Structure formats: structure tokens, C-alpha cells
Simulated assay, not measured.
Amino acid sequence: MKFEVSDLLFPAFTKDAMKNLDKQYGIEFFYEFGKDYYWNQQLEDWGERAFSIHAPCVALNLADKEQEIYKQAMEKTFAYAQKCKADFVVVHTNEAIAGDKEQLRELVISRLRKVITLGESYGVKVLIENVGLRTKNNVLFDLPAYLALFETFPQAGALIDTGHAHVNGWDIPEVVKALGERLAACHVHDNDGNGDAHLPVGQGDIEWTAYFDAVKKYAPQATQVFEYCCGFNNTKDLEEHIAELKANYKL
């Protein structure tokens, strides 16, 4: 089982903290929050290790029919992913939604088809993340619709975000089982079911024993990306936390 750390934990000028992260851990970074020259320097500082990229999701919304910049933004993302030999690029189906859900799903699927084809042209693996929150009324792809995406796009991989799934009431171990070998990665973080808090494992009420047991049994190939936004201000304490998880859950 492979492990990565999202740079969400160390934003802006604190990203240099990641250069102290043990090389056994990969790094997933939010490409939209920096120019290429910035990421070139970050990757040099972070050293040789596994990388993955989170595609634009703040300034980009595939469910917004007025936004036509998505192809340009995604092509830049894939070009950089190719350059840094990223293992995969994570793509959101949508952010805020407004309008008829069926029509919006059709729009997003048509755009995903173009995005995935573009990714293939750069030799980049595209992972589709489960997004939207019950508490924000922006769930466009519920569980059946999300799983159906991988029948439509068998060439894409799945990325399960545990926090989103928990807020939306999904049975996460059963989702892991259903996806099986299609599950390429997971965003791992905790919450109390009422909001997307991005807490460290154990600080919410997700049933982690059942989750990790399911991953070990049905999707051991899935990279575990710790997508925390709080709880640690240095990589030493973070590494101790991950080591404790690996020991407790026999990872």
C-alpha cells in the first residue's frame, strides 16, 4: 500500500515544510495555486519521490455551462503532470450546481469525456473523485450515478474521498468493495458527518477499522492520500501519526 500527503496541510509559504517529509511518502499538490516556475522550485525542494496532482477545483467547475476554459486549464494541468511524471491527476465532477440535475450530469459527462481523452493524449491517468456535500446541496452524482461513471469511462480510475462519502451517508467499505481494482486512490480524512472538516484520522467518527480492512481486502493498490487541513504544523509529527496508523491498522 502506497501513501501520499496532500499539500493542503501546508498552504502558501509553508509548503517548504514538505521538503522534510520522508521520501517514502509521495506528495499530491493543488496545481492551480501556483505557476509552473513555482512548482518547479517546489518539486526540486521536495526531491525525488512519487507525485500526483489535484486538478483545478476552485476556479473551475465542470457543471457550469458558462465556463469554457476547462479544456485549456486541464491541458495545462496534464502537461505539467506529464513533465513531473505524476502517477495520476484527480478531477472533480462539479462544484456548485444550479439548474436541472439531469441536464447538468449530461453536461459534466460530456466534458469528462473530453478531459479523459485529453489526459490520455498526455499519457496521464485521470481519477474521478466523489464530490458534493449533502450539507451544501451540491451532490450531482449520488452513489449509483458515481459508480455508473466507471461503466461509461472504464479507462478512468476512481478516487474515493472519505470525508465527502461520510457526510453523504455512504457505506464507505461497501463502496471500496464495489469499486475494487478501479479504486486507484483515496483522500483520507475524518469528520463528524456534518461538514467537510479534513480532520486527521481518529478525530471524527468514521469507522476506520472497517475502512482499512476493506481497502486491504478489495483495493490494496489504492494509494492512501492524507488530505488533512489541520492537526500538524510539521512533518515529523505527521510522520509519527502515519506510523501509528500503519501499526494500529496493520497497513
Rank of each mutant, 00 (worst) to 15 (best):
H166I: 02
T135N: 14
G119E: 03
G34H: 11
V91T: 11
G231R: 06
E120W: 01
A59W: 07
S121N: 13
N94C: 14
G169M: 09
F30W: 14
G123S: 08
K15I: 13
D142Y: 12
E120D: 12
D36V: 13
A98I: 04
Y25N: 05
G180K: 09
Y218K: 06
Y218L: 07
F33C: 01
Y228L: 15
Y38D: 15
V215Y: 03
Q82S: 13
V131H: 01
K125D: 12
V201G: 02
A222G: 06
G99Q: 08
V188T: 10
P11W: 10
D213P: 00
C57P: 02
A17W: 00
A219W: 09
P200G: 08
P220V: 07
F30E: 12
I128Q: 05
A156P: 00
D171V: 04
N234V: 07
I242M: 13
L149C: 07
S121K: 15
I109A: 05
Q72C: 02
Q203T: 02
A50R: 07
V115H: 00
N248T: 14
K2H: 12
L199G: 00
Q221G: 11
F51E: 00
D192R: 09
G26P: 06
E239W: 03
K19R: 15
H54Q: 12
K85E: 14
G99H: 11
A178R: 14
A184F: 08
